[in-house]
Write a protein that binds this DNA or RNA. Structure first.
Lengths: 247, 247
DNA sequence: CGACATTTTGAGTCAGCTCAATCAGTGTGG
DNA sequence: CCACACTGATTGAGCTGACTCAAAATGTCG
């Protein structure tokens, strides 16, 4: 387990993917007061309908955003790795239209809205950096939406695997070939708009085709090119720093 | 056809849904230099991959955001009514990861990035107002994603109709009971991740159930409560001003 | 009246769903 | 160390919502 400085460092790293921030403003960010809290796996951090006075920074573990659709079950809307602030929007939007929950045991840092607002209002650079993050998130939504709407099940599954390892690599939690994949199959299915059973069968095919290995919560890419082909994966929409990418 | 002032007035109206702007800043917005351009129906305004130096303001007509997915056809990602700036993100994100196109003949106003940036950097209120708009857009993406992933075809169709008339009402283009619906059925299908044929059949059922009437590009709500039930529609995610809503 | 776009209908197929077991991995209490 | 309880993965057997292909019907507009 790391300390607060390192958690905030992750945040700064993320915020500076496109444009560097002057040292002075980096320092301001690193000084944000953070209240850490530990969550068991499968617990809610914030629930739909709530109004909050703080943002949460994912420090350790995997967090997801989801909605429950009457009857139809759960739709996972996004995945959040350390360094993400999945609810910056609560700064400007009154109430949550969805929930945030943990998919693994997780450490979450809470930062008061006032503290964040003071920063964004004090510097257009910081403000734009946060804004930019929310725009990238929207870009990922678009990709997911297009995938759920128009891609076949195998393609969606492969796409999720591509995206996951790409993001893990970008934050230094993977070497681009292998990484932990803490998602269960029902969770993957919920993210892709598929049933668990169908997901399982199509994932099995992807494995049998020799594209990936998945064992004991670990994903290993065996054929990156092949996987990208199935996925029709083009990492552009992630708007990451150039240069870092799997395989 | 209206004039530039009125087009910009629509924008200001949208930006002040949640928080009023002081008169001085409203004026700054209304003075934004706008270059109008007319587009035929079905033409692209910006294409995936392009880098732009301007934002576009929808002045008249209906605009959509879409992606083409190899093989699987087109996914319409969002619909944009007058007053929307569908590509504010181009201010902060290098290149388009999707295209913008017209669904009707349309008038689009172009505003140089520099002009917008000067404004957002000069006033955190304006900056937050724009940011907030992009956050609401993200909220709509989430709702659509959940719908495509987890709702049945009839529910999705009803949901789109509910959303459309709600937004039209919010900008004064509907009385809450009836409005123009310039979308063709293939377009609705593309927005919902359905095939045209299936869409048509399920829409026919909704009409036969007496929930709506659709004739000659015009949507009329016959049973708002019933339609919302089918749609499982809760307008919260649109984050509109309280009080204005259909029926 | 044409010519073209859009909607509607019919028929057959299939991807993805549900239901229902079975298997495997992990942890717990005795 | 083993039996039991759980959670998650896998497999099999239908079923059906949604798809494709193709054609007919209906608008729309110069």
């Amino acid at each position: 387990m790391m300390n607060k400085d390192q958690y905030l460092e992750n945040l700064v790293l993320k915020l500076t993917t496109s444009t560097p921030l002057p040292p002075e403003e980096r320092t301001k960010l690193l000084r944000l007061p953070l209240t850490l809290k530990y969550f068991e796996s499968g617990h809610d951090i914030v629930r739909e309908g709530e109004q909050t006075k703080q943002c949460c920074l994912v420090c350790e573990g995997l967090v997801c955003r989801y909605k429950i659709i009457g009857e139809g079950g759960r739709q996972i809307l996004s995945l959040h790795l350390p360094g993400d602030i999945p609810d910056v929007h609560s700064l400007l939007i009154d109430r949550m239209d969805h929930s945030l929950g943990t998919l693994t045991p997780a450490v979450v840092g809470f930062i008061a809205h006032d503290a964040v607002r003071a920063l964004t209002r004090s510097s257009y650079r910081i403000s734009e950096a946060f804004w930019r993050e929310t725009l990238i998130e929207a870009s990922i939504y678009r990709e997911w939406m297009a995938g759920i709407g128009r891609r076949s099940a195998p393609s969606r599954i492969a796409h999720l695997l591509c995206e996951f390892i790409t993001k893990m690599t970008a934050i230094g939690l993977s070497n681009g070939v292998t990484c932990v994949l803490p998602l269960t199959q029902p969770e993957i299915a919920d993210a892709l708009g598929l049933s668990t059973v169908h997901m399982n069968k199509k994932l099995a095919e992807i494995r049998k085709a020799g594209l990936v290995r998945i064992r004991a919560n670990r994903l290993t890419i065996l054929d990156w090119k092949g996987l990208c082909d199935v996925a029709d994966f083009d990492p552009n929409y992630l708007h990451l720093r150039p240069s870092i990418s799997p395989k």
